[in-house]
Simulated assay, not measured.
Amino acid sequence: MSSLPIVVGYDRSLASQGALQWATTEAVRLEAPLRIVEAFEIVVFTQPSPGKVVPLAGLRSARERGLSALADGIRHLNPDMKVETLLVEGGPAEALLEEAEHARLLVLGSRGLGGWTGLVLGSVAVQVTTHARCPVVVIPPELRARRHEVPTVVVGVDGSKASAKAIDFAFDHAEALHAQVLAVHAWSSPFRTYEDDGRSMLQFDEAEVMESARVLVAEAVAGAAADHPDVTWNMQLAGGHPARAILHAAESAELVVVGFRGRDGFTGLLLGSVSQTVLHHAHRPTAIVR
């Protein structure tokens, strides 16, 4: 059992309820503690509102009781799981980043109320996914379970160090999910290859490009595959924009995994077009791995 918790941002919205359900399932699979965090932001009214003023202590107490009841319900269904709750005052991004310092995984819904509002499009998402020290999983709205004979974890591969971290994460979760891994690599012509000394070369021949891509993916996945001999994997190679290739492969995936930084098509993954496209359009849980 891992001593590091899976942390989930919760605000009582339907989106955060979906994130909580996903995080609970992961905690069961990984035998990890679950930590439910809710941000408690103080709202100051400049004009008095007779009959509508709620004492701060009473509001906080009501939120704490709600979290406690939520945790009790999870413990009832999962008696062996350690469940903790935390109600924090202040901004959600700061609270989550602090929690990420000692978390195995951070889980958030892509839409929410109050503190988590506008997760994918707003500043909270940029701050959390950019600065969190642990992997962050974003759960899309209206997440529906996929029923496949062999569940699949999709991972973007580009040969970078960030990509290597994403591959390790993908294989770890595939093993826990009894799933296969689909390693996706895409390129734009001409194709850039990298030598051991750091020099780069451009290739224009389609057959050479395909072979170079196949070798790149095989070498990138080799270590994780050796560490997880029971996990089967395949590669998917495609010319064009990497986000399009990932989204196409992710349509029926249990989890989509991308690295925080990459080269070529995956460069600037979180702040660039690839990450934004994947996070905006993926209908499956998406993990961002630093």
Rank of each mutant, 00 (worst) to 15 (best):
E206V: 14
Q203A: 10
E195W: 12
V231W: 01
D196G: 03
D197G: 08
R199V: 08
P190C: 04
Q203H: 15
R199A: 15
H185C: 04
V181F: 02
Q236V: 09
L237C: 04
M201Q: 10
W233H: 08
E195S: 15
V184R: 05
F204A: 13
M210V: 13
V184D: 11
V184E: 10
P229D: 00
D196Y: 10
S188G: 10
S200H: 13
M201R: 15
A186L: 06
A207T: 15
A238P: 00
A238I: 02
A174D: 03
S200P: 05
Q180V: 07
L237R: 03
A224Q: 04
F204Q: 11
A243F: 01
Y194V: 14
F204R: 13
V221W: 04
R192I: 11
W187I: 08
F191V: 14
G223D: 12
S188I: 12
Y194L: 13
A220S: 13
W187Y: 14
M201E: 11
G240R: 06
G198W: 04
A213P: 03
E195M: 15
S188N: 14
M235Q: 11
A186T: 09
A183M: 08
W233Y: 03
M201C: 04
L216M: 12
S200N: 14
W233F: 02
V221I: 07
V209W: 02
H241E: 15
Q203G: 12
H178F: 07
A243E: 13
M201G: 06
L202G: 03
D205P: 00
L177W: 04
E219T: 04
A225K: 10
A207W: 13
T193Q: 08
H185M: 07
A207V: 15
G223H: 10
A238R: 05
D227P: 00
V209F: 04
A218M: 07
E206S: 14
A176H: 12
E211W: 05
L177F: 15
A174I: 10
E175A: 13
A224H: 02
S188K: 15
R214I: 00
V231R: 01
L182Q: 13
A179T: 12
W187D: 01
A220L: 05
N234C: 07
